[in-house]
Design a binder for these strands. Structure first.
Lengths: 201, 201
DNA sequence: CGACCATTTGATATGGATCAAGCGATGTGG
DNA sequence: CCACATCGCTTGATCCATATCAAATGGTCG
């Protein structure tokens, strides 16, 4: 099993809020798993625009690469603990153990599916993007209609390909329409999930 | 080797211009390789907007899935011949042959890289998107500065997340600036590659 | 030649970006 | 404990890139 392999050869690290885990184009020596907190991957264009590739929550893996270098950089969104697994050790386990190799393939496949969802997101309107984002954040281990956003508005904007002002205004608008409630900026209650879902595919 | 495996268990088919190879959500029974022509994958949203996932040229593989169903549909852009490989046969080869399994993983990884490039494209301006698209189409087997576009302006627009008018205007603008020349709408000569490249990352 | 389709071009509208304040939490030093 | 700076977020006013609507052009095939 993959998780057993990871645990046996991985090293636990903790990373401070905002600190870099690895940089774009650095040699891809490690594969990581989030143990607690949230990690974002990102890329900064020459003119300063930033694209966030994905957010990774507890239990998810990131930093799996095929080339020699990372194609995005990775930073801790908040305080994080992560498991760092040496790529070569893992490869050697995978070459002896088909199940582990298959699990690594599945991680890549999951990553691909994530990227496809992201592409579909980026051709939509601002309302649709924000709605889709909230719904995505609302699924997972947390219960039903409460969403705790670990990331800033700027992070959300850079993930959605919008500006911070547009994200803020759209959230305000959803709140005015009573689809959601925003007790604090990082904590959102979804009252009318159907209204948000109506804005999807 | 993967290609040998594909050739031995694959069946050659030809597909007419515009015809569907498989549909979104259909059971994913086959993995395909383009032998000649170009294939596009796409997804149509409920309101009619169409997103093109990718274009596949001769030699490239498409339709590799992990779930039970295809996540995009696939159509022939022009007259095409393709090789259809039964997924279960291939899986059984892969389970016995590590090299084949590894190659399949690489196909997924290439697909992921493609998706990441696509995401980066979609956060840019219209000029940058079109420039990047032309440069991408200009690499590959064809020689240097000549691009033959197998697809329509509408296909390009749906790939880039723009309208057909914007794509057309942007191409006209590049021609006016003498970066390119457009003898016919499907045939483009790149005169100033650097000018296009300047619009990228 | 005439019908049809893809593409280009023109005129106008608009969603989201940009520029600019204001506001509310959190923290720091006096 | 309170001014005051700072930071993240929201709100307002205006602008602009791209969409939308509409028409002209050109290429292809019967």
């Amino acid at each position: 099993m993959l998780n057993a392999a990871l645990d046996s050869i991985g090293a636990v690290k903790s990373v401070r809020r905002g600190h870099e885990i690895y940089g774009e184009n650095e040699p891809a020596e490690f594969l990581y798993k989030v143990l607690s907190g949230t990690v974002r991957t990102s890329k900064v264009l020459s003119d300063g625009r930033r694209q966030i590739g994905a957010f990774y929550c507890s239990g998810e893996m990131f930093g799996l690469e095929f080339g020699e270098t990372y194609s995005f950089s990775a930073e801790a969104v908040g305080e994080c603990t992560i498991l760092a697994v040496d790529r070569h050790s893992l490869n050697s386990v995978a070459s002896r153990n088909n199940k582990v190799a298959y699990q690594l393939w599945l991680v890549t496949a999951a990553e691909l599916e994530r990227a496809h969802r992201h592409i579909t997101l980026l051709i939509k309107t601002a309302q649709e993007r924000v709605a889709m984002f909230l719904l995505q954040m609302g699924t997972g281990p947390t219960t039903g209609s409460e969403i705790d956003l670990p990331m800033s508005r700027q992070d959300i904007a850079d993930y959605l390909g919008l500006t911070i002002e547009t994200v803020s205004r759209t959230i305000t608008q959803f709140a005015r329409e009573a689809a959601i409630e925003v007790p604090t900026s990082r904590h959102i209650l979804v009252h009318n999930r159907a209204a948000l879902q109506r804005l999807n595919d």
